[in-house]
Every structure is written in C-alpha cells, then in structure tokens.
C-alpha cells in the first residue's frame, strides 16, 4: 500500500495543483473566521479560550436545528441560509459573552492557569451539550446549496458554488472587522486595552465593556463559521470543536497572536499546508504536519509571522 501513496503525476498536474490550492484556500478562509475569535480574546485578556472551538461546534448544531425548522416551514433554501447566517452568530455571540460573564470575569486577576483550566472545563461542558444535542455519531448537515462547478468542466479546474459561498461571506466579514477595529471608537478602545489594560482604564475606557464586546464579536464570527462549515463540509459532530479550534488557534499563533490580519494569513497558510500535504505527501500525516509547524513556530519565532516583538507582560 505504501508504495502507491506517492505523488500523482497526472497529465494536467498544474491543474491539479491549482485545484488543491483552491481547496486549501477555502479551508483557510473558514479557519480564519474561527482564528479571529481566538486572536481577539487572547489579545485582550491573554486567555487561550479552549472553549472557542466547542462554541463553534454548538453553533453548527444550532444552525442545523434552526435550518431544519425553517426549511420545513418555508421550503426555500435561500431563506434558510439567510436566517441561519443571521441567527447563529447572535446565538454564539451571546453564549460566548455569557461564559465570559459567569466564568472568566471573576478570574481576571487570578493566576494564568485558572482561566485556562476553566476554559478547558467550559469546553467539556459544551461538548457534553453537543453530545446530547447531536448524539455521538457524525450528523449530516443537508447540502442546501447545490454543489456545482462554476468553471467549465473541460478546463480541468474546479471552483464550486460552496467555494464561492465561503469567499462571499468571509471576505466582507474580515474587511469589515479590520475597518471596525481600525476606525471606530470601540475598536480603538480594544486596541488600547490590548496594549495596556491599566492605562486604558485610566484613560476612561470601560475595560469590562470592551472585553464583553470582544467576546461578542469573537462569538459572532464563530457563529458565521459554523454555518459556512455546515454548508461546505456537510458533516458535523460533537467532537469537531477541538480539532477545528486547534487548527484555528495554530493559525492565530502562526500569524502572531493578537494580530487580526496575521490570523487570516496564518489560517490560509494552515489550510494550504493541510491540503498540499494531503494531496502530495500522505493524508494521514497532514494533521501531524500542522502541529509540527505550530511547534516550530512557537520555538523559533513565538511572535508569529506578522507579530511585533513586544515586551512580555508580567
């Protein structure tokens, strides 16, 4: 078996390469949405929010349940998708904020281990909720969008309707987020809090409100990712949160944690690495390669690709 898993030299290997890149790019965009939630929270409260991936998972189940109900009522896939895209982010945003208020808020001054362990605890709780919601098996997420190649079949290239959906939804969200953080007053307050919470407070910024807003926005992005993931990958399960969360977090670290464009760049790199490794090396080792990259980066350049070398907070 091992002898046959080598490289594939099809007659059109450039086409093949491009197809793999498209797959990697769309996967990367998806991770970017989740990675943004990690990077923003870490940037402000220095917490690896382990529960973020599982929040995303609950978002998927919410979208599935809601989608099923709306589809039964209206019978229109477009209306269903629109409603899912509106309601799921709201659900995830408030759930995320609720967790912050009830769990993390009281631990702001505690040793760093405390909120991290709490986040692992919350992730366990979310997983158990997901287990009761969807069962322990993989659940099919109905393909509301017909999977169709938008490019001519004889070109040998493939760019499908769901690929387009991913780009159409994620690109504006990311651009909007960048503008929001750069130019609104809340965005400025966020950046200020990330740099120095005490100084920000002294400048009259309501730090608690800023943190709550960060959790809201991070949650909403995870909610959007949930819907896109369901429509594109079409299978969800209660254990999906951990792995997706980890990829996304790796992306955030790769790009320089706390850095918004960095998270997007990191996610695209991770998506590409995963796809290329699956196609050219061995799909079974693709996950391991992502983590080898994570460790290498952490060891040699802990500030990531775009991260600035800042003084470590003590």
């Amino acid at each position: 078996m091992t002898g046959l898993t080598g490289l594939v030299f099809a007659s059109a290997d450039t086409q093949f390469f491009i197809n793999i890149c498209i797959t990697g790019l769309t996967t990367g965009f998806l991770y970017a949405l989740i990675a943004l939630g990690y990077t923003m929270v870490y940037g402000i409260v220095e917490l690896i929010n382990f529960a973020h991936g599982d929040l995303f998972m609950l978002g998927c189940f919410f979208a599935l349940t809601l989608g099923g109900a709306v589809m039964a009522l209206t019978g229109s896939p477009m209306a269903t998708i629109a409603l899912m895209l509106l309601a799921t982010p709201v659900f995830c945003a408030f759930l995320n904020m609720l967790v912050d208020l009830t769990v993390y808020k009281a631990l702001r001054t505690a040793p760093k281990l405390a909120p991290l362990v709490s986040a692992i605890g919350v992730s366990f709780v979310f997983m158990n909720i997901g287990l009761f919601w969807g069962g322990s098996q993989d659940v099919n997420f109905p393909g509301l969008i017909e999977e169709r190649n938008l490019l001519a079949e004889d070109s040998g290239l493939q760019f499908t309707t769901t690929d387009l959906l991913v780009i159409l939804v994620t690109a504006p969200v990311m651009i909007g987020l960048t503008i929001f953080v750069k130019s609104t007053s809340l965005g400025k307050a966020m950046r200020a809090t990330a740099q120095n919470p005490v100084a920000a407070q002294l400048m009259g910024i309501n730090v608690n409100r800023v943190i709550a807003a960060t959790f809201l926005i991070g949650g909403a992005l995870a909610g959007i990712a949930s819907v896109i993931y369901g429509l594109k990958i079409k299978t969800i399960g209660y254990q999906m949160g951990f792995q997706n969360g980890l990829y996304a977090f790796t992306a955030a670290v790769l790009g320089g944690i706390g850095n918004i464009p960095g998270a997007v760049l990191g996610a695209i790199v991770i998506g590409m690495v995963y796809s290329l490794a699956s196609a050219y090396i061995d799909a079974r080792w693709a996950t391991a390669m992502v983590f080898v990259i994570l460790i290498t980066i952490l060891v040699f350049r802990p500030t990531g690709l775009l991260g600035a070398r800042t003084r470590e907070k003590v």
Binding site: V103, I120, V122, F124, V125, F126, N128
Partner: peptide, 12 residues
C-alpha cells in the same frame, strides 16, 4: 464530560 467540566470551572 459535563461533570468533569463543571468540576473544573467550579473548583477554579
């Protein structure tokens, strides 16, 4: 999972 998770959160 629920019980261990809650235990972690409450203990912390």
């Amino acid at each position: 999972l629920m019980i261990f998770g809650l235990a972690l959160v409450l203990m912390m």
